[in-house]
């Protein structure tokens, strides 16, 4: 496993590969959201902050 030569936890081969596939797809969503908020930014619309951001507290 070239990613994590020192990992002490076995991430599991199948878990690794499915994660890459799922995350690639989900990453597109995150990227498009980022572009969208940038476009909205040009028109002066601010995006709402998300849960779990640094400022929020553990409920």
């Amino acid at each position: 496993m070239h990613f994590l030569p020192h990992a002490y936890l076995d991430p599991g081969s199948g878990s690794f590969l499915i994660q890459l596939a799922i995350a690639a797809l989900l990453g597109l969503g995150v990227a498009s959201r980022a572009y969208w908020s940038k476009i909205k930014g040009w028109f002066g619309i601010k995006s709402k902050p998300r849960d779990g951001d640094d400022e929020s507290e553990n409920k």
């Binding site: 990613f3 590969l17 994660q19 890459l20 799922i22 995350a23 690639a24 797809l25 989900l26 990453g27 597109l28 969503g29 995150v30 990227a31 980022a34």
Partner: peptide, 14 residues
């Protein structure tokens, strides 16, 4: 196959 930061964030959000 490597995983971008955006992909990682997408995974956690999902």
């Amino acid at each position: 196959g490597s995983m971008s930061r955006q992909a990682m964030v997408g995974l956690i959000e999902s």
